[in-house]
Design a protein around this nucleic acid. Structure first.
Lengths: 484, 484
DNA sequence: CGGACTCGGTCAAAGGTCTT
DNA sequence: GAAGACCTTTGACCGAGTCC
């Protein structure tokens, strides 16, 4: 570099360096470079070619110089010696009279005199920089935790294999059938089973207590369905592609379903498409959603929080090349949660209307019903937390001190007959309370699923996770437990 | 290299500038002014320092910048480093915790963190060209907009002034009164007015069309209330401190209210306290929540999205020195949304039970009712979007093609008398549909607000933003419009 | 036309690597 | 651990298009 103006700091006086007995390197600070002629070991004649290449000789040991280093023409040896000495703050001592000859042959015989000659030749310790990063290409994986992107991608790939063999590669929308309610439920069931399989491929998940595993699987399963369907629908416009190759058009016949589809397209598919989300990012998002420490009734929320932390750091590092990308991805989660809730409401409605048979797995995972084994150990863990009756099944919060006696209550101001209709056809679990309000069919109730054009709203409470404690152990095992 | 200039600062004892052992430690100099601010703060009076006037600081290492390079103001060193890294497709690895400090002195100590910071500062791979062909697309825009942390902090401070004079500094919980329903509503009203004032101090907000301003104010007002109360309650345990100095104890008499309080404490206050959230971070979070592009009926969602983008990048930059902090902060938003919805349900319930008079402002902003002027221009903009009947008022989505005729429908299987009771006492807006389900009072309905111990769930639809178009213009101006 | 900007490239002199 | 031959990275400086 050319900023060697620092060499201009002149202190006239002392080249007569006094030989202080102090043996720290501090003493060299006062040394000033001597005129080169005076210092050259081979001063005068310089037989062959000193004048042409003045920089060819090391001004410390007269070896061949490799350039100027730290302010003085020097060889690699003296360069390295000076750097090591300064970096490590070495304190040398001369065993003789500090008048040792320093040349190519004898330069290693006295470090004290060699270093002193470095300073005299003009080397400055300020020119030695801080230690830098290593150059070697050691590949060190993720230093944090055990969660890795490759593992997440593998888990994802393994659950997609089944899918790809079914769906094939035919992006032709026109070839696909429009899904009816039963198709949607069937697809959801498939996807939920895949979600369980996905989770089981994550070691961090398998190490959790079984009740926590169940809680996590139930907590945000709806969001996983929505995220999955949004991802699958990325290549298309105005349609949602289900896992079983059915589609839901935005302007389909079943209006309430199409409304959810429209929100998926507008609030999720479109921004995800604009971001051009990668598989890696999807995998991380999925894990971030899955390992939700706020999930009610968790025995060990801190463990879950740590896994989520690893996942979000993984996503951060996977996206750091684009400013703001990480934030934009995480900011997809609130609308995802919102859309997922709306979908659950639709499902609740469908079940109550008897439009389709809602599988017990869907009931347990999406509707938060079914036999409650999860949360059995919620006792002290959920102490201050949980609380909150949590309407709308937000995050599957269950009131842990709520009533155990729950009954179905259903009513429609428009058609009271509907109230009791579907209830008989489904299993009503003991101690289960589900109340639902149906929208008023006011204009065109021609479509079976759509009693009204306005919003269809369903209230969906959750089971009490604490009530399992009082349940007889002989009760049937819920479907999710059988999966695990 | 500029280490030569280091010679000017006379070193003390340690010439062997060893690595500071702390250089990988967290350093929270979060008050470091942003480069843009630094420029703006010293606008005019710098005639004496021409060299420092036009030049800013490198946004990566704070060395003197030589201009904008690849999208970020940077020094020649970071410029060259970025170019080499991109050209050679280097993949660096941090030997530490990926939180290395990157400044003028230490920028060469971790290439991973340096490159990461280059991206964070706004450098883009695409700006690195391989050959000598100039791509004419210069003037890439400002990169980041005009939103600044100082402005956000000012807006925050100005709305807190009123507050601090009221609340004073008495952390003695015992001295405060337990809030009743009316106190809670009163506090909410105060805070909502402060929210409006806060928004009006943000230039980006003021530049939006009036309908969009109203939409934004309504969209996430409940979350702002919850975030504010959580922040205010940070120093306390087991109580929630309202803005008007009342408190809500977790084990208070009004159980449903206390349940919300418990969720606030557990899901929001506790993690926020563990993070030790700063004012700056709160300010950014508030803006991120506020500028929600998914807000229904927005005339110009892209403008809102850009502001939110700026806000989240600001938060990212304010937190980048602590690994994972940005993600943890953003991951507070889903539970915040969830708790906010539950609070709105409680409010809905309170109003229906006639427990307290719910101000029209609360109705408009929190319950999404009242005169609908917002969304009047929703016509083409909300085309594909919105859709979705959106139960539970998720993000205030309103069905834009839904029915305009909405009626109250209410039912309780336990106490039918309650169904019609409160409805008479409240104003039923025209074309309004509100259906609410009340929990079954099964065990101890002794508390007025708490009909049941189980979850209290309220269904809360929103008004149709599109219906305003058909409304006569002579209708009364809603309270929020008067504020603006 | 000319100065401000921001690309690309250069290469002395830093750094690190690795065998002896 | 030190020495030093050998290779990589850094960044100050410069030229060249482009746009005011």
């Amino acid at each position: 570099m050319r900023i060697h103006r620092a060499g201009l700091h002149q202190d006239t006086a002392s080249y007569g360096m006094e030989l202080e007995p102090s043996y720290t390197m501090l003493e060299f600070d006062s040394l000033r470079p001597l005129p080169e002629e005076a210092e050259l070991v081979v001063p005068g004649p310089a037989p062959s070619l000193p004048p042409s290449s003045g920089s060819s000789l090391c001004s410390i040991c007269a070896d061949k110089a490799t350039g100027k280093h730290y302010g003085a023409a020097s060889c690699d040896g003296c360069k390295g010696f000076f750097r090591r000495s300064v970096r490590k703050n070495h304190a040398y001592t001369c065993r003789f009279n500090r008048q040792c000859v320093v040349d190519k042959d004898k330069r290693n015989q006295c470090r004290y005199c060699r270093l002193r000659k470095c300073f005299r030749a003009g080397m400055r310790k300020e020119a030695v920089q801080n230690e830098r990063d290593r150059i070697s290409c050691r590949r060190d994986g993720q230093g944090l935790g055990t969660l890795s992107i490759s593992m997440l991608l593998q888990a994802e790939a393994s659950t997609h294999q089944l899918l790809s063999s079914v769906g094939g590669i035919h992006c032709d929308t026109g070839m696909k059938k429009v899904a009816h309610v039963g198709d949607v439920c069937e697809s959801m069931k498939q996807q939920l089973l895949l979600l369980v399989e996905w989770a089981k491929r994550i070691p961090e998940f398998c190490e959790l207590p079984v009740d926590d595993r169940v809680s996590l699987l139930r907590a945000h399963s709806a969001e996983h369905l929505i995220l999955g369907v949004a991802r699958r629908s990325l290549p298309y416009n105005d349609i949602i592609l289900l896992g079983n190759d059915f589609i839901i058009p935005v302007n389909g016949p079943e209006m309430e379903v199409s409304k959810v589809a429209a929100r998926i397209l507008e609030e999720l598919v479109r921004p995800l498409r604009e971001l051009d989300v990668t598989d890696m990012e999807f995998a991380c998002l999925k894990a971030i959603i899955f390992f939700a420490p706020d999930c009610p009734g968790l025995e060990n929320p801190q463990a879950v929080r740590q896994v989520r932390f690893q996942a979000q750091v993984l996503l951060d590092e996977a996206t750091y090349e684009q400013r703001g990308r990480f934030g934009e991805l995480l900011l997809m989660l609130p609308p995802l949660q919102s859309v997922a809730w709306q979908m659950v409401e639709q499902l609740q409605l469908v079940r109550l209307l008897g439009e389709a048979s809602v599988d017990t797995l869907l009931q347990e995972m999406l509707l938060g019903e079914g036999v409650a084994r999860a949360g059995a150990a919620a006792g002290p863990g959920a102490s201050a937390g949980g609380g909150a009756a949590t309407g709308q099944g937000a995050q599957l919060k269950g009131p842990e001190q709520g009533s155990n006696t729950e009954v179905f209550s259903f009513m429609s101001s428009g058609d009271p007959a509907m109230a009791c209709g579907p209830l008989g056809a489904q299993e009503v679990l003991p101690n289960q309370f589900i109340s639902v309000i149906l929208p008023v069919p006011n204009s065109l109730p021609d479509l079976p699923l759509v009693p009204t054009q306005t919003g269809t709203e369903v209230y969906r409470p959750r089971q009490d996770p604490g009530m399992a404690q009082e349940m007889p152990s002989s009760m049937p095992i819920p479907p999710m437990h059988r999966c695990l």
